[in-house]
């Protein structure tokens, strides 16, 4: 299944992911404006598309400042970690038959592992900044992402049970008859919520809540280091949308249109849904977030796994 020219695929996927992440900044601002009865950026270039370019130029020329009180090495490493872990996850994402860098047979676990390593970026950024708001943001991020990772993994195990594999390609091919969103609807909802929390998007952006913590863990960051957090967040959104598409909505499967087009359509739909969530919902309090995670989501995920396992056992016997 792996493509014949892995290097070419790699470069294409890397370029596409980074371009899409940059483009998402524009998409998000336009869509948010649409849902708030505004226009959003529409001055630079056609439909304001070049706004992203202007922002990029601006962010590249900003002073790249490291506070004298910060822990320098960790401060520099932290933004790189988020970008590396998210980009690594794209290695196992099957966009279409043949468009995949590495068809790992524990692909799903690899993605989960990389997302759990992504926590370090936020935590270390908060710690290295030596700033109380940044530290609070880092602590919040650690607690939030640890908690939501637990049932993110558990919610996916139902899919793994049904597909019988951790390989993302075979999970897609196992949905030839029915998308997993039908038998695994609870798993889908749980994964969606956990995905929002995992990418620290609104309404779960407590680690960087502006009204409480300035900018949370990246309060002290500027220039391209801040840009890396920014791009990392959007890459995370793309990744979670890709995963939802692959795990619950049949990946590239679909009639008439070529597979990659189907994949992109489904992915864009979920990206837009993420932005809609941001436009619609307020931020919960932190204790609400934690108790919601541990007291509602985790038991639900466990019950879902139990029922799925039982049904799968009865079905197969």
């Amino acid at each position: 299944m792996t493509s014949p020219y892995p290097i070419v695929t790699m470069i294409v996927i890397l370029a596409a992911a980074l371009t899409l992440a940059a483009g998402l900044i524009w998409v998000e601002r336009r869509l948010l404006a649409l849902w708030q009865d505004r226009y959003g950026p529409n001055r630079v270039g056609p439909f304001g598309l070049l706004q992203v370019l202007a922002d990029m130029i601006k962010i590249f020329f900003k002073e790249d400042w490291i506070p004298p009180f910060a822990d320098k090495a960790v401060f520099i490493v932290a933004p790189a970690v988020i970008l590396v872990t998210v980009l690594m996850s794209f290695a196992v994402v099957p966009f279409a038959p043949g468009i995949i860098i590495s068809d790992l047979n524990v692909g799903l676990l690899f993605v989960l592992g990389m997302s759990s390593l992504g926590v370090y970026s936020v935590v270390l950024a908060g710690w290295a900044s030596e700033n109380k708001y940044a530290l609070l943001g880092g602590v919040r991020a650690a607690a939030q992402m640890m908690s939501y990772e637990v049932f993110m993994g558990l919610a996916l195990m139902g899919v793994v049970l049904l597909a019988g594999s951790f390989n993302l390609t075979s999970i897609v091919t196992a949905q030839r008859h029915v998308w997993f969103v039908v038998p695994q609807f609870i798993g889908f909802v749980l994964f969606l919520i956990a995905g929002v929390a995992e990418t620290r998007r609104l309404p779960f952006d407590l680690p960087e809540a502006e009204s409480e913590l300035i900018a949370g863990f990246h309060s002290e960051y500027s220039g391209m280091k801040f840009g890396m957090f920014f791009v990392g967040e959007y890459l995370g959104v793309i990744l979670i949308s890709c995963l939802i598409t692959i795990l619950f909505f049949g990946g590239w499967l679909g009639p008439v249109l070529p597979p990659i087009v189907w994949f992109l359509i489904k992915m864009m739909f979920f990206i837009c849904f993420f932005i809609l969530l941001r436009a619609a919902l307020p931020r919960p309090r932190f204790d609400q977030l934690m108790s919601w995670g541990w007291k509602v989501m985790l038991p639900l995920a466990l019950a879902n796994l139990l029922v799925t396992g039982a049904v799968a056992l009865v079905w197969s016997s």
Binding site: L34, W35, A280
Partner: peptide, 11 residues
């Protein structure tokens, strides 16, 4: 909020 897509823009 989704239905606001079809509202007139105030800008």
């Amino acid at each position: 909020v989704f239905l606001h897509m079809f509202h007139r823009r105030v800008t």
